[in-house]
Design a protein around this nucleic acid. Structure first.
Lengths: 201, 201
DNA sequence: CGATTGTAAATTGTTGACACTTTTGGGCTG
DNA sequence: CAGCCCAAAAGTGTCAACAATTTACAATCG
């Protein structure tokens, strides 16, 4: 039996704040200060500062010396387009890597993630949809490029600030991901690539 | 008269460590501990920890919980190729942006940077060559995408871990950059793009 | 003799206190 | 009344001490 993975205090706080930003609970421009988060999470300022530094590096927060941090604004349309292009580059790379192809276990895991997307849509929990969608793509990227590539990819995804409220219907979203997996199962890389690129927007 | 730009303690330390890694003074796998750097830079562990976190996010250092950090290893050839592709995507985007085109001042600045590349080659200071080269490209990226894009771009460049010792001759390097600028001066974007892509490798 | 366990040293994680900077608000001057 | 200046408050930057974890090493046991 596998132990539950141990996750550091910092990582938990970082993940919570990312979630708050993605979900829109924290609005762009909103200022965060260290002391209030100290109280919220019950830790001292040190770990909070670490998290601020981390999220700033990821582009979710903007920082000015001696002036604290605030939630970063959305990217300009031009930069959004560039991020889409980079994501397509990375993820296309991911599915066309051949040294460690996807096995049955991988497909099972991906199917499970798609199931979670479906469930989240059913409950109108768009934050959960976003997270599951990210997890789906991250799985593919991680498989091909390891943590190194996955982390780089992740910062780009976060900067795109996906918002599933304005997204297509649940069925479309689930179907798109299912179609990618189907093509990969059939080892039709060209088709998988085409569907992947269509899904990233 | 302009004040000299103020740069924080953290940024200075970070830049010094980046330089050590790029120059090869710190080898891949080498372990860094906080206390020794405390003595070297004459600050407490706090800022050192911040820098470690920053360079870890950039991919220069690898970190394990409770086990400190070490200089990260080079990317696999496959990932190197991917980074080249992403850099080309970003920098092509940069020079084809039109809302704020390069003006005469920009060209003067870029010429000055090329001059520094030439000087550094003359003195066989390959670390300085690397830095000036990075500065050249960063100038273009920053002009088009601001700090936001420049920082993302920078992490990718750092991961490529350029090494100019094995690079082409001084003349080739200088000429390549000059040729890019010439094409941009003549507003021949297609040619500039072609030369830029050839320069990134 | 090899493997294992327990203890000591070294290193990282966390905390609260202090120093410095920025912001805020009120009072003064013109 | 607008604008400036100054003091108080709030917030960040830095530091040194303490807690927890990991590593190194030696003693013990099979």
């Amino acid at each position: 039996m596998l132990d539950r993975q141990i996750v550091s205090v910092k990582d938990q706080i970082a993940e919570q704040l990312r979630s708050d930003i993605i979900s829109g609970e924290l609005s762009p421009g909103e200022k965060l200060n260290e002391v209030s988060l100290t109280k919220r999470f019950g830790v001292s300022r040190g770990p909070i500062r670490d998290v601020f530094l981390e999220l700033t590096k990821e582009g979710l927060l903007a920082s000015k010396n001696n002036c604290g941090v605030s939630v970063n604004h959305d990217l300009s349309p031009a930069l959004q387009g560039l991020m889409v292009e980079i994501r397509r580059t990375i993820e296309t790379f991911a599915i066309t890597q051949h040294n460690d192809p996807l096995n049955e276990e991988d497909f099972d895991n991906l199917d499970a993630i798609i199931g979670r997307i479906r469930e989240a849509f059913k409950e109108n929990d768009f934050t959960a949809v976003t997270k599951a969608d990210i997890e789906f793509h991250r799985y593919l990227v991680f498989k091909a490029g390891g943590a190194e590539l996955a982390n780089l990819w992740y910062t780009i995804v976060l900067r795109m600030r996906m918002n599933y409220r304005r997204l297509s219907t649940a069925k479309d979203c689930v179907d798109e991901h299912q179609a990618i997996i189907d093509a990969l199962r059939n080892k039709d890389l060209a088709l998988a690539k085409e569907r992947l690129i269509a899904n990233i927007k």
